[in-house]
Amino acid sequence: MKYQNLGSKPTRNGFGIALAEMGEKHNNLVVIGADVTGSVLTSFFKEKFPERFISVGVAEQNATTVAAGLALSGKIAVFSSYSAFSAFRNADMLRVSVAYNDVNVKIGGGHAGVTVGPDGATHQSLEEIAFVRALPNMTLVVPADYEETRKATIAVIEKPGPAFIRFGRPSVPMFTTPESVFEIGKANVLTDGSDVAIVACGHLVWEALLAADILESKHGIKARVINNHTIKPIDVKTITDASIQCGAIVTAEEHQVHGGLGGAVAEVVAKNYPCPIEFVGMRDEFGGSGEPDELMIKYGMTHKEIVMSVFKVLERKEKGFVGYRKVSDVPISDN
């Protein structure tokens, strides 16, 4: 395989390290904590710049609007909590005070997805990509590994305006390097191939690479793996090219199959150059307690489901575009 696991690390560490790094560079960077600073690793910044760290307690709504107030005072304001609370508890604040105001607030959505593990369904945010990407003015990034999260955090801090960065709790394989290019809005094509495209984000990018390796070595299928780290603004060109050149797409994300990366890709494809798409993700249900690996298997978000979805989408590709078939032939998808 072209990509190797260079060492497993949590993506949240990349966020924490980058914040502390950016605190040096930007003396107007202020971080707001809502009691889980050791979890989302804003604690690194807090230790280094206590005078620019504001603790508001477990009050995510106030944290978000206070961030907006700081941004309206010329600060780069960062607020991070678990994604379940920094995207939903404060949803109206994100919409009005952050997005509508179009201010320099950066929201960290940590412990995202089922991989937060034993905490269970209440803490497993699986819907925030759908919500956040619907907000005008927002930038939304879902980086794949430690190194990319570090770079993505720096990039959203350097880019004026509201942004949301989503990352996870567990150690996951790191396959990007300090030299890998990261540019907001520009998806990275990781493997060449034109039989099928696998568009993934976050923890599922590594699974997509594993899937592509199996597809090629065991089945002779060449998959184009696209690391679509920026959900908004979406990279229309790379996705449309994939649709034109591969004619079949599988999306993969640790998020509900409705409204997330899959939805974003489908919108681009439907509008520009339709092709069959299969969606790997959470299938319209809530998670539960367990170890991250057990949960990813249970809820069908591993390389195995990606491989199966590639078979499914290639079958559809071979039969021809769904629009040319009789309505009665169209299978009703369960996801």
Binding site: I54, Q61, N62, T65, V66, A67, A68, G69, L70, A71, L72, S73, A77, M93, S97
Partner: peptide, 8 residues
């Protein structure tokens, strides 16, 4: 809440 942020 925004005013509180400004005051901070």
């Amino acid at each position: 809440s925004i005013a509180v942020g400004m005051a901070i």
